[in-house]
Structure formats: structure tokens, C-alpha cells
Design a protein around this nucleic acid. Structure first.
Length: 422
RNA sequence: GUGGUCGUAGCUCAGUUGGUUAGAGCGCCGGGUUGUGGUCCCGGAGGUCGGGGGUUCGAAUCCCCUCGGUCACCCCA
């Protein structure tokens, strides 16, 4: 096994270096701009919470039963904590704790943690952005969130996405549907894969998630959720769909779409990136979760929201060749062969003037510094040597299209470069 | 948790049927007469061949174990 000299980022985590780090930040910035234009306010909640916060989102979900980074602290008695595996639960907890006036429309961004085996598009620490609206049962609130996600994808140029929509029903109609599904799968249990038979015993709906070929024909012939909706759920769903139509948001009705968290009621949706040829091509998902707030001891409060996977979205952008990493080239590189302090003084002035200025250290040769200047991507190099010092000027050398160079009197250098980069 | 696959310099890789001081390209550092990058030329640094054990006169190469990456299942963003 590797010794301490081979330390690396923990399994399923990674370092994101420039310029990809700036790309990710830019993506989050775009999301923030869009949802804040719709009046959503940011919530920054803790990275870890009492485990009870997460266990309330569904005792039978994998996220809770086997994917949590849980630990105890050194309090007496110890607190049972967990790194957050998702953020809807934290938002519901915060709603109950602070009791903001409803409807409460919020957005968030940040890392989530799940103890899973990593693979393409799946990490133990992964970044999400999302929104939640608590306190409105209006189907148009569902639509509002969906439209924001769609606007976001359009904004970043990721046009190759599919929106899948379904209704999970509610406590009125879901039990009967569950019975129907359980009956159907039980009837064909012999033909199901062994894993699906196990899933059937725990949560029949989850069988729909199976990708195993033998299960497909049985899944295809299973009863459809939309055919079993009660009048209220059907009306809600119809309102969502007609509003999406009116807003010209394309979607695919997906009666087999079940989501992995137990708290969903009525509307559920998922965004797929067909261009991603990995097993994980769901770049976002969400839905309505009326009743969740009650489980946190709050008043009856409907809610709807979604989370988008930033890492997967960026993978999809790579595949579609859109939303490239920003150019992190410097504007100016200062070559100083008279000790380096002049470069410090001038870079301070130029940075204050709004330019991106880098320089060399360690008093390296002019040739070496010029190489660094070239590599920095800077459009111009400023050269300060003995000659320039005695002349009271600096040499400005262009590095890109042409390689002109000329002397600029020291007092004029800031305005000269501001002009050049305006 | 299960399975496939891979693990040789910072990166991408080559290393023939096991055979001497383990190579290339890129990158990095220095130089190409004393102040100028990007092309070119020359030179240099850098590897316990993931780790451990075994077979053998001899192992990067064969066997076992282990760790890690990666992909897939499960599940999800």
C-alpha cells in the first residue's frame, strides 16, 4: 500500500483545478442569476446535520440506509451527525426552525456527500444547485421551478436535454396503485431478475428503475401511474402539463419515472442529457413533496423543488462542446531583471487599475521570464531592465499578433495599458 | 456491497519468447557568446516499473495477495 508520500484525494473526491474551477463557479453564478431573477433567495445551510434530518426523508431509501457519511462528535452525550446527502431535508428543517412566511422560495448550491462506489458521473462529494418552494400547492409553482431549470440549461447552451415528467399520486390514490403494481410484478416474479425480486419486496415502485434486460417487458406492461390518479392529482397534473404546453416547454410523459426518495407526491420530473453516454445521464431531478415539512414537526406545508448535478451538467457540456472553461490568460506579464521590486510596484498599480497582471519570481533570467510571459497567455510583456530604469520608462512588448515593442514613460504606463485593454 | 478492466518518469505511453546501467514524445530546467518569448538545435534533472510475498541463476515481464484508478450493477445528481 502507498505510504504517506502517496497521499491523494479520498476515493470519490477530486481536486478541481483552474480553469475548470472557474468554469464550475461560473456555472453556479449563471444559475444564481436566473433563480434570483425569479425572486428565489439563497440559503446557506450546514454541510452536516443531525442524522435525524436525513433519516426523515425515507427510511427505505439507499441514501439513508447505506450511503450516508455518518459520525458522532465528542459532545457528552455525543451528537449523531452526517454529511448532507441531499439538501431538500435541510431546507425543510430550516423552514421549520425559522418559520419564514410562505411561500418561501429558496435556492442553494454546494457539495453533497454520499458513500457510494464512484463511477463516471458519480462522486462521493458532488456539487448540486437547486431550488425549493415551500408553502404553495399551486401546480404553477411546480411549473415555475421546471421553467427555471429549463432556462438555466438554455442559458449555458446545453440545449440537448430531455425533460421527463410524471405524477406519483398522493396518499389518496397511491396505495391502490401500489397494490396494482405489486400485483403485476408478483404475478410475473418468476421472469424478473433476482435483484428486482428483492426490490419488489422492499419498494415495488423502485423496480421501474431496473436496467436489466429481462425486466424490461414486465416493466413495460405494468400498470401506469397516470391511469390510477385520483381526481385531485389528475387535475393537478393536467394543470402542470397544460402550463408547460403554454410555455412551450417540451417534455416527455414518463409513467415509469419513479424517483429514489420516498417523500415525493404528485409531480416528479427529471432532466436527462442524452448526449452523455455514461450510465448516469440524469443531470437533475425533482418534484413535489407535500407532507415533508410535517415530518419535521412543522405545520402542513406543501413543497416542490429540484436539484441539478453540477458535475454531470459539466460532463454533458463537454460532450456537447458548450460552456467552455473561461480563458484564464493574464493581460500583462511583468519581466523584471533588476531585482523584482519594480515588478511588485508596477503590478500593484496595474492590478488596482483592473488589469490581470502576473510576474516572475526568483530573479530568473530574462529568457526564462519571457518564456513565463508567453505561457501566461498575456497579450503584452512589460520589460524592466537597467536601460529602462535609467530612462525612466518601461518597454512594452506585444506577444500575440505582432511582436512590436516600444518604450513607454513610467508615468504613462497605467493609462497606456488601460487604453490598450479597454 | 458485487463484477469487469487497468496500474512503467509531472502527463500520454513503448518495453519483443523473463536476460546486463528501464525508454520515447510532451512538459520542466539550463544553454545556443554577454537584455527578449512563441519555431529550431544541444544538454540536463526526474522512475523503489502501485505495494508485499513467491517462482527463477535472473522478474516491469510469470504466480498469489493487497492497495489504488476506471467502468458497470445497485442506486442516484
Amino acid at each position: 500500500m502507498a505510504g504517506i508520500d502517496k497521499l491523494r484525494a479520498p476515493k470519490g473526491t477530486r481536486d478541481i483545478l483552474a480553469p475548470d474551477s472557474a468554469r464550475q463557479r461560473h456555472l453556479v453564478d449563471r444559475f444564481a442569476a436566473i433563480v434570483e431573477s425569479a425572486g428565489y433567495g439563497q440559503v446557506i445551510s450546514p454541510m452536516f446535520e443531525d442524522v435525524a434530518v436525513f433519516s426523515r426523508v425515507g427510511e427505505s431509501t439507499d441514501i439513508v440506509t447505506k450511503e450516508m457519511f455518518a459520525f458522532t462528535d465528542r459532545d457528552d452525550p455525543p451528537q449523531h451527525l452526517a454529511l448532507r446527502p441531499e439538501l431538500t431535508a435541510s431546507i425543510a428543517r430550516a423552514f421549520v426552525q425559522h418559520r419564514p412566511t410562505a411561500p418561501w422560495a429558496v435556492w442553494y448550491e454546494g457539495p453533497q456527500f454520499r458513500y457510494e462506489r464512484p463511477q463516471a458521473g458519480r462522486y462521493r462529494q458532488f456539487m448540486q444547485v437547486g431550488v425549493e418552494v415551500l408553502g404553495s400547492a399551486d401546480p404553477l409553482a411546480d411549473v415555475d421551478t421546471i421553467v427555471l431549470a429549463q432556462e438555466f440549461f438554455d442559458d449555458i447552451g446545453l440545449t440537448d436535454t430531455s425533460l421527463m415528467v410524471n405524477s406519483m399520486g398522493d396518499e389518496q390514490c397511491r396505495p391502490a396503485y401500489l397494490d396494482a403494481v405489486r400485483g403485476h410484478f408478483t404475478e410475473h416474479a418468476a421472469a424478473l431478475s433476482e435483484q428486482s425480486r428483492e426490490t419488489l419486496a422492499k419498494n415495488p415502485l423502485r423496480v421501474f428503475d431496473s436496467k436489466r434486460p429481462p425486466d424490461q417487458p414486465i416493466i413495460d406492461t405494468a400498470p401506469s401511474l397516470v391511469d390510477h390518479l385520483c381526481a385531485d392529482c389528475l387535475a393537478h397534473f393536467d394543470d402542470v402539463r397544460s402550463a408547460l404546453d403554454r410555455l412551450e416547454v417540451d417534455y416527455v410523459l414518463s409513467p415509469r419515472l419513479v424517483r429514489g426518495l420516498d417523500y415525493y407526491r404528485r409531480t416528479t420530473f427529471e432532466f436527462i442529457a442524452p448526449g452523455l453516454d455514461t450510465a448516469q445521464n440524469a443531470i437533475g431531478g425533482g418534484g413535489r413533496y407535500d407532507g415533508l415539512v410535517e415530518q419535521f414537526g412543522g405545520p402542513p406545508t406543501p413543497g416542490v423543488g429540484f436539484a441539478l448535478g453540477v458535475d454531470r451538467i459539466l460532463l454533458a457540456c463537454d460532450a456537447a462542446d458548450v460552456f467552455a472553461a473561461p480563458d484564464d490568460s493574464a493581460d500583462v506579464f511583468i519581466v523584471d531583471v533588476v531585482g523584482g521590486v519594480e515588478a511588485s510596484v508596477l503590478s500593484q498599480q496595474l492590478r488596482r487599475a483592473g488589469l490581470v497582471v502576473t510576474r516572475g519570481f526568483d530573479q530568473r533570467s530574462m529568457k526564462a521570464q519571457m518564456k513565463l510571459a508567453d505561457r501566461s497567455g498575456a497579450r503584452v510583456a512589460i520589460i524592466i531592465g537597467e536601460q529602462e530604469l535609467s530612462d525612466g520608462a518601461v518597454t512594452v512588448r506585444h506577444l500575440r499578433a505582432d511582436s512590436d515593442q516600444h518604450a513607454v514613460p513610467y508615468p504613462d504606463i497605467v493609462s497606456h495599458l488601460q487604453e490598450l485593454f479597454r
